[in-house]
Design a protein around this nucleic acid. Structure first.
Length: 297
DNA sequence: AAGCCGGGGAG
DNA sequence: CTCCCAGGCTT
């Protein structure tokens, strides 16, 4: 639909790298010497959770479980409590399975090959490339929500990121400089996180504003068609909220809890039962011989 | 391609 | 209140 814009991307690369050098956030996992396990952990924790909330938990985990082998021996209950309120606790369970696979099939070492990484539980298209790139320095395209948004705007001249798609990989791959790929990808993500933000981009602070296709086009607002595709997920009143409330009870309980302690978290019997059942099905909760509920051992 | 899966903080 | 966040998995 939108007319293709010709952008002189190569000239933007050094500009972006210079900006990154000046504005990079000092995230804990960016410190030199961070292990591949540390990178993997940071990426999984950051899936759908802002990095500001991730950092303190990441530090705890790295101290407690410094490598995959140490973590692989933890119990699901321990892991879910340590995960706390990072959200989507299934991610924590998959991380445990992931570490166990790393131990059993990769000799306890986080693989550096994208396909090997993709085969790990909880590791998808983004995370696999992020680990290959940021942990091992491989020059592979890393495409997250930030990169998609920045490329859509700066290169294609459109405002919204739209739905994630593998088809965006080649486009980003074409932008990757032969040198400094990891640095470049990190800079692109950082620009999206700090400047080229989702709803209110700070174009006045953007190092690419002179070359940005969206700015050049007059900063057109998102089209009605683009807005219609957005559809933000509800949270209040959904099963996700009820599941979260139940998990909060289980995490905080010293001993297995009776049904009555779960019943008080939500008034709707049908929805509450559905949520509890789904947690059991997901392996996020279990029932002991006495019928009490607890985190999985 | 669309729906589901937590929770918090900014606007 | 709505929106978003270094996504992944299932259908």
């Amino acid at each position: 639909m939108g007319m293709p814009m010709i952008v002189d991307w190569p000239t933007m690369v050094p500009t972006l790298l210079t900006w990154f050098h000046l504005h990079e956030r000092p995230l804990a996992w960016r410190e030199p010497g961070t292990s591949a396990w540390g990178i993997l952990l940071s990426e999984v924790m950051s899936q759908q959770t802002p990095v500001s909330r991730v950092e303190p938990v990441w530090r705890e985990w790295m101290e407690r479980w410094p490598d995959p082998a140490a973590f692989a021996q933890a119990s699901p209950a321990e892991v879910l409590r340590a995960w706390g309120k990072l959200g989507y606790p299934r991610r924590a369970l998959r991380l445990l399975e992931c570490a166990q696979v790393i131990v059993s099939r990769h000799d306890g070492r986080v693989p550096d090959d994208v396909d090997d990484l993709l085969a790990l539980p909880g590791v998808g298209d983004y995370t696999a490339r992020a680990v290959a790139c940021f942990a091992y320095g491989h020059n592979v395209p890393v495409v997250d929500t930030n990169v998609r948004r920045v490329v859509r705007r700066a290169v294609e001249g459109r405002f919204l990121a739209g739905t994630a798609s593998k088809s965006e990989l080649p486009a980003v791959a074409g932008l990757l400089p032969a040198e400094d790929g990891p640095r470049f990808s990190a800079a692109l993500m950082e620009l999206g996180a700090l400047v080229c933000t989702a709803t209110s981009p700070r174009c006045g602070e953007c190092p690419l504003r002179k070359e940005c296709a969206w700015v050049a086009a007059g900063s057109p607002p998102p089209t009605a068609e683009e807005l219609a595709k957005k559809k933000v997920q509800k949270f209040a009143g959904t099963d996700r909220q009820v599941r979260g409330l139940i998990m909060d009870v289980l995490r905080g309980a010293e001993a297995p809890v009776p049904q009555s302690e779960i019943d008080v978290v939500w008034p709707d019997d049908v929805q509450r039962s559905r949520a509890l059942f789904s947690l059991l099905a997901d392996g996020l909760a279990e029932q002991d011989d006495a019928g009490l509920f607890r985190l999985p051992r």
